[in-house]
Design a protein around this nucleic acid. Structure first.
Length: 460
DNA sequence: TCTAAAGTAT
């Protein structure tokens, strides 16, 4: 960058330059702009400094952002909002109490919490940080000042309630919103999908089309509902809409289509979408098609697609690994699956996740190699999870191996002491060998934990 | 000239 010394940039120019730096995402260029601002004496311009904070945020420098905030002589709501965003973006810096303290501090300094503040805070309200309802109350109390059902705030509320499995409260917000754009519609549709009501999700999607034009994200969001309902017809209609509206050049949409076709059982359509050259395939495209072939018992095709991916220079990740190994498992390709697992670190640079390890256990187990599966569990690089022992349990049921069933159940109880089905499975093991004393002891253990048999376990 | 929201592969 060069600068004509005779013409000094004003605060507007500098703000534009700061914005450009954010878009490039280059912190060095941003820092240069920041230096000019200091030299030209514009550091007291709040709006300009807010854009510098936003630049540091987008360029990944929490330190830069914090420093600007701390040195600002005057701050407005936007300054606080960017700082709060910083806490949510830079997760490693995230200490929830700190965020709440910032909010309190903001109020103490009489800075108004606005719709921006609220829609930044709401996505941070997960299981660990439980201010969601408090924030919602704040919104209700400040309805007139805040424009309660601001479309941003409303969408965030729907999303927050969805994550807490409360689609009813989300729907109440949605129904009361003054204006609903595509984001709000997508949020409520997603909420139904995430909470298992795919019929309502599709019904809303139909209604939505009379109100707003679907975009790429909304189509991607609704496709899993078609998969869940096994509605190939619904999926094809969305595919048709995507083609007519030229969304089918986008990799993310094609990925969602591939997944939908695989899950609806139409592999040839999935492959047709995959093979379309009008878009650039990424690791999700490959992982989806590989998993699809694997799921349908076509392990050899899954393995050759996996090799094709490597040849194309697309780096597989741990999810790709899970797809290809589980495909091997379903097709009895133990040797191929183990080869891929063993090359994961050395050839593909993937450290196997516990999910990948569970697939290996499942693969060995299905093939009847239960001792080898147990040996694998004892030597795997990550701590076995319930899914790992669950895989061994499933295989020991399949191959009627009581001894392995007992081992798997014991570990399952150890890992999930509150899950009653584990006790029941173990007591079934003992019941089948007539060890009623141990069965009774297990019943007592369940009782002392306040656990009950799940309804429907009539076989116990 | 400043700040916020929805999505796809196990």
């Amino acid at each position: 960058m060069c600068r004509n010394e005779e013409i000094s940039p004003d605060n507007y120019t500098l703000a534009t330059l700061s914005k450009v730096s954010s878009e490039i995402g280059d912190v060095r260029i941003g820092e240069t702009v920041h230096c000019w601002i200091i030299k030209t004496g514009f550091v007291s311009d709040t709006v300009l400094m807010n854009s510098v904070m936003a630049m540091y945020l987008k360029c990944g420098s929490f330190r830069g952002l914090r420093e600007v905030f701390d040195k600002m002589p005057q701050r407005n709501s936007a300054s606080w909002n960017v700082l709060i965003s910083g806490f949510s973006v830079f997760n490693s810096c995230m200490i929830y109490e700190d965020v709440w303290m910032l909010v309190k501090q903001m109020q103490k300094e009489s800075v108004r919490l606005d719709a921006y503040t609220i829609s930044t805070l709401l996505p941070m309200c997960d299981g660990k940080w439980n201010y969601g309802r408090e924030i919602h109350c704040f919104i209700v109390k400040n309805e007139s000042a805040l424009d309660y059902l601001d479309v941003h705030v409303g969408s965030c509320l729907i999303d927050m309630y969805s994550k807490r499995k409360n689609v009813t409260l989300g729907r109440r917000v949605f129904d009361r919103m003054k204006c609903r754009n595509i984001v709000a519609w997508t949020a409520i549709i997603m909420s139904y999908i995430q909470n298992g009501d795919c019929e309502e999700a599709l019904a809303l999607f139909q209604r939505m089309q009379f109100k707003v034009e679907p975009n790429r994200v909304s189509l991607i969001s609704v496709l899993p509902a078609c998969s869940s309902l096994n509605s190939l017809m619904g999926g094809k209609q969305i595919h048709g809409f995507a083609i007519r509206n030229e969304f089918n050049h986008q990799v993310s949409l094609n990925n969602a289509l591939i997944d939908m076709y695989c899950k609806c059982g139409d592999l040839s359509y999935a492959k047709r979408v995959f093979d379309n050259d009008a878009y650039c395939k990424d690791e999700i495209s490959w992982s989806s098609i590989i998993a699809g072939y694997g799921l349908h018992g076509k392990g050899n095709e899954a393995v050759s697609l996996f090799n094709g991916m490597l040849q194309m220079g697309i780096k597989p990740n741990s999810i790709t690994l899970v797809g290809v190994i589980s495909g091997c498992g379903r097709s009895g390709l133990v040797k191929e699956g183990l080869n891929i697992y063993n090359s994961a670190v050395t050839l593909y640079g993937i450290s196997p996740t516990v999910e990948a390890c569970a697939c290996v256990v499942d693969m060995l187990g299905r093939a009847g190699q239960l001792d080898r599966a147990l040996e694998f569990i004892n030597s795997m690089p990550v701590k076995p999870s319930p899914s790992v022992w669950g895989a061994l349990f499933g295989a020991s049921v399949l191959h009627e191996n009581l001894e392995m069933r007992e081992i798997a159940c014991k570990f399952l109880i150890q890992l999930e002491p509150e899950n009653s089905s584990n006790y029941i499975s173990l007591s079934n093991v003992y019941a089948s060998s007539g060890r009623w004393d141990v069965v009774a002891e297990l019943r007592n253990r369940m009782k002392s934990r306040g656990l009950r048999k799940l309804p429907g376990c009539s076989w116990v």
